[in-house]
Design a protein around this nucleic acid. Sequence first.
DNA 1: TATGGCCTTGGAGTGCACTCCAAGCAAGCG
DNA 2: CGCTTGCTTGGAGTGCACTCCAAGGCCATA
Lengths: 156, 156
Amino acid sequence: MTVMETTPTRTDLCGAPPHPHRRPEGEDSYTISEVVAFTGLTAHTLRWYERIGLMPHVDRSHTGQRRYSNRDLDWLDLVGKLRLTGMPVADMVRYAELVREGDHTFGDRFELLEATRRDVLTRIAELQDTLAVLDRKISFYADADGARAYEAEKVR
Amino acid sequence: MTVMETTPTRTDLCGAPPHPHRRPEGEDSYTISEVVAFTGLTAHTLRWYERIGLMPHVDRSHTGQRRYSNRDLDWLDLVGKLRLTGMPVADMVRYAELVREGDHTFGDRFELLEATRRDVLTRIAELQDTLAVLDRKISFYADADGARAYEAEKVR
DNA sequence: TATGGCCTTGGAGTGCACTCCAAGCAAGCG
DNA sequence: CGCTTGCTTGGAGTGCACTCCAAGGCCATA
């Protein structure tokens, strides 16, 4: 990848209101510690992501230090979101590989995204189910005196 | 895609048996392998839960084998749900300890449940955010031929 | 010139949540 | 009786996702 960006702004769809700390295209060259500050990841983790093939080739300064671009930050945003879904890092690496391999992996990538989407829907449903259980327990506790609170432990 | 609209049939307050495999009170004595079949956990994990204090004292047969009750199954259901929220096992152990300690931990338990509830809401929000990103990417892929699909990698 | 800060590397270590192992006991069956 | 099946135990091992370490390079300020 690393093809030159042509879109003048990424705030294209859905009015993405995203990242106040970003510099405009052409000046988007962030040190690792800046990226640490932006993403909440550690420098260790950023270097590790690169080692395992989860980052798409980060630029270097003339002294060999990493210089991250806005594109890299975008990618890390996506990775962060996928991480929240519980997707294993290995699967994200697989996706990164597909992107690196070029257009002919289009179908695979599409499938991977759709499978992930289904997983996310399932997880949301599970969490809503859990929420219902919690709410039921909480209302027992809220209504009850001590003795009844103990009873609350008996119901699912 | 496994549509799981929240079924209203789960509003079982101290009543309807939600688990077809359960036996009535008084005959609720399950071997570890039955519990494995019901919960999807392994026997190893069940024993490990007990060792770390996550199970509230499981009965034994005259030969020393574990005999789980409906209450134990209820507890495992709760544990399973909490596990789905990403709650660390150590926190669940803490909750189990509070229950064992009796009524005077009422307040602590209530707080723990409410904190968990807030976490779950946060997680659901995060997942919905992720879902929006995925949907956006997927629609790029769905609309696009190969060349455009490549472009889709450029947007957050 | 030296001090401190930020960065680099490969490899080793950590914490969590299991997961498995070896050795052994008890019950049921032919 | 031996065989199989199912269960028991403490402790060791596994896989994942980091997390840290030691040793050193670069460079701006004092």
